[in-house]
Design a protein around this nucleic acid. Sequence first.
DNA 1: TTGTACGCGTTATCAT
DNA 2: ATGATAACGCGTACAA
Lengths: 326, 326
Amino acid sequence: MSVTIKDIAKKAGVSYSTVSKALRNSPLVKNPTKIKIKEIAEQLGYQPNAAARSLVQKKSYTVGVIWPTVERVAPSILITKLNELLEEHSYTTLLSINKVNQAIATFNRFQVDAIIVFGEHDNVQELSLASTVPILHYGVQTWKDAPTIDVNRQYAIKLAVTHLKELGHEHIAFIGDQSKENTLQRAKLIGFLESMGINEKSEIEKLVIPTNGLELHDGYMAAKQLFERQRNISAVISGSYDLTRGILRAANEFEYDVPKDFSLVSYDNIPQSEDLHIELTTVGVPISRIASEITKCVLTMIESKEPTHSVVLEPEININESTRKI
Amino acid sequence: MSVTIKDIAKKAGVSYSTVSKALRNSPLVKNPTKIKIKEIAEQLGYQPNAAARSLVQKKSYTVGVIWPTVERVAPSILITKLNELLEEHSYTTLLSINKVNQAIATFNRFQVDAIIVFGEHDNVQELSLASTVPILHYGVQTWKDAPTIDVNRQYAIKLAVTHLKELGHEHIAFIGDQSKENTLQRAKLIGFLESMGINEKSEIEKLVIPTNGLELHDGYMAAKQLFERQRNISAVISGSYDLTRGILRAANEFEYDVPKDFSLVSYDNIPQSEDLHIELTTVGVPISRIASEITKCVLTMIESKEPTHSVVLEPEININESTRKI
DNA sequence: TTGTACGCGTTATCAT
DNA sequence: ATGATAACGCGTACAA
């Protein structure tokens, strides 16, 4: 059986409402009493019953995060960060890997204060209507009615191209995933083509190396292919961090030095974790900023139940060792 | 504001206790009334308030899963599967990526009926004591007091060796991750050495190709290295599915055919998802069995609050196209 | 400064 | 077959 405030009250010789006040740090309780009560609570391993609390407060201080099937690894860092931030505002994060509509139902039953949905899925607006709780979507194209947060990936690649051109580079290649019908990856390619001013098929084939996925190995194979065929490339833009790691391994095998032999810009949100022997120049929205933006947005939605407007985060460039003047 | 049974009662012109019964399919309510009430509930988008329910029932029909380091695919598939199975028993799964002790506190406040902890961490027993809710650990060495579920990885590799020897193979290599101080990976290596009866350093170096991680690329590089140096290997055992994918790619480059040029056994739990042009012979405990074992265990713990005994799952071999007689 | 009483939404028990 | 009512643990307005 769980320990309740009544148990504490009995042991402390006070009424249970006094205990309640003491634990909530109310000024209506004398300090010595407060300390004594808190001690007993600690000692008994008291955990307030969330069910009872949310029942009376009509608030659970909890946000639900829906994280359905696919795309698991990438957003995990984001969710970890998000979790930390919400905790700082004394909110608890609960995750569900159920199907979206089912997860929404669950979170509604648990009276979470807000729901964050990761990734794309059908009929967003329908889902939003089915919930009494405000819902925020991340990583989808801006939707009409549902509040959404997304990143301008197209502009990120544009930033990379501009930077390289300023450094004098003209022969710039792009390595990125085009294996699936993925809007997110597609946006990066479009950003590249537009800012390079390319539209001829022959030129596209020369400068764009499509990969079959987003793993390290895909970047490795693409880079090898590039190095074998094209000798006059002076800069490479990579569509993801893992691809970049693969590109660096291939470069190493060819005994190419970055940035001496070619400059490298990586699309990326996550802080560089692995030791790559080089600090990368990256473009993208740092994951910490995404997380804090989501947090801000969610807290606003919780406070004023009005629909927040959707926001598109503008990426930044982080110039580092892997690029230099030609 | 959420819709409650009272709202439904008012609209249906009955008392709210009747509504409660009707929704719970009690035989104490006439069928026509029941149908009418259910219709109204549906129409109003009613979701039972989990807080209120668990308050009175002292049961939340929820299990909390703690997943501190959001890892790779394998565990996420397991959790997905687990989620499905628990759902079939009308339990809801909630995930937390918090630190273990904090997550336990959260889940206690939410009155979950049981907690499953994934992965290794310090002071298991301490944690178990801090919880009023039964805790089950997965993926750690069996612990004294805390109930644990784990897989016998060592024996899995032994199965692979035995199978290959029966097919007439003698020169068998092992490709596996040894980059970190990881007990789980270490167990596989020990299984290999023991069942091969190897202990000389020179032989170990010849037959064991250590990798620097568990990614596809690591398997690819290791296999290439193997193929270049050793010509008389007739079979390869791989420590993980991703490594196997890399090995197959390397084989493809060398124009080696599996199983014509060498047999391949992969350690693996997950159902083969990707199209590898070949059905693999695998050893390991299928993830579905792990999931159902965990489910069984958890449900037992919930029902009889007694500590279940720890269990070690015995792997099986799944013979397929990738191995054949020498 | 502390204690009493009520209500949150639900289920379960008892009375009608 | 249906309705009234107590109880779950907590927070809070109000009484002492």
